[in-house]
């Protein structure tokens, strides 16, 4: 589904990603861990098509198409979803309006008719329950005045509605209390299916207690220095990244 080959990315003159290789198959869940500033969000943003990053080398294939040629809104409509680490506020725009515009943009792209107001509302309420979000938040301006946890839930709500093929979750677990972590994880697990791939960016093993990854990768200083099974996350939790950097030293 997703193939990243020797991806090198700079911001201005500063290289941030230095040769990333990553292969994700449908149905798989990958976790990306790594110290602050190692390039995790950068990778997610480049996948989603944000401006301001220069790909100096390498390629990204999504369902065998050259992803780097696609405009961000087309990537979204093709089924790539990014749950932002810092969701932005959009004053005056009702949350539900953005949701409706988003879902209909996707449906139009798929050649499906737009959802009418009733069907849309019904679907939205079902997904609200899934992520344990208060209905009142639908009618408030997008993310404005939402608590940290509410913002994260809102991202997952959008994901649940848009049913992406590839979901990128950038630290969706940070800022959640224990109960919220559980409901959000359940929401993500409910979306797990053989056609969908999920990439989780996280700092905490905790999340992986709820969502079980197939692969765990450690990103440090713009490189994936180690990949492994779920047990890798446990070792990291115990020993920190220092262990990898000193013991291995060399990129994997």
């Amino acid at each position: 589904m997703l193939e990243i080959r020797n991806l090198n990315v700079s911001i201005g003159d500063k290289p941030i990603l230095k040769g990333i290789d990553l292969h994700v198959k449908p149905g798989e869940i990958h976790a990306i861990m790594g110290p602050n500033g190692s390039g995790k969000s950068t990778l997610a943003q480049v996948l989603a098509g944000r401006e301001g990053y220069t790909v100096t080398e390498g390629e990204i294939l999504f369902e065998n198409k050259n992803l780097l040629e696609l405009a961000p809104e087309l990537r979204a409509r093709e089924g790539i979803f990014l749950a932002f680490q810092y969701p932005v506020e959009i004053p005056g725009v009702a949350n539900i309006y953005l949701l409706k515009a988003a879902i209909n943009a996707r449906r139009k792209h798929q050649g499906l008719p737009e959802l009418d107001a009733m069907d849309f509302l019904e679907l939205t309420k079902e997904k609200l329950r899934l992520v344990g979000m208060d209905e009142a938040l639908l009618y408030r301006p997008v993310n404005e005045g939402f608590s940290g946890g509410e913002k994260k839930r809102n991202e997952i709500l959008q994901m649940a509605l848009l049913e992406p093929k590839l979901a990128l979750l950038d630290e969706t677990d940070s800022g959640l209390d224990i109960d919220a972590l559980k409901t959000v994880s359940e929401g993500v697990n409910a979306l797990k299916n053989p056609d969908r791939a999920i990439i989780l960016i996280t700092h905490y093993q905790r999340l992986l207690d709820y969502i079980h990854p197939d692969r765990v990768h450690v990103l440090a200083n713009g490189r994936i220095i180690r990949s492994g099974g779920p047990e890798l996350a446990l070792t990291l939790e115990e020993r920190g990244y220092g262990w990898l950097e000193t013991a291995e030293g060399i990129p994997a």
Partner: peptide
Amino acid sequence: FYCMQRGLSA
């Protein structure tokens, strides 16, 4: 970008 990532045109 946030809106476009949700599929909206610029």
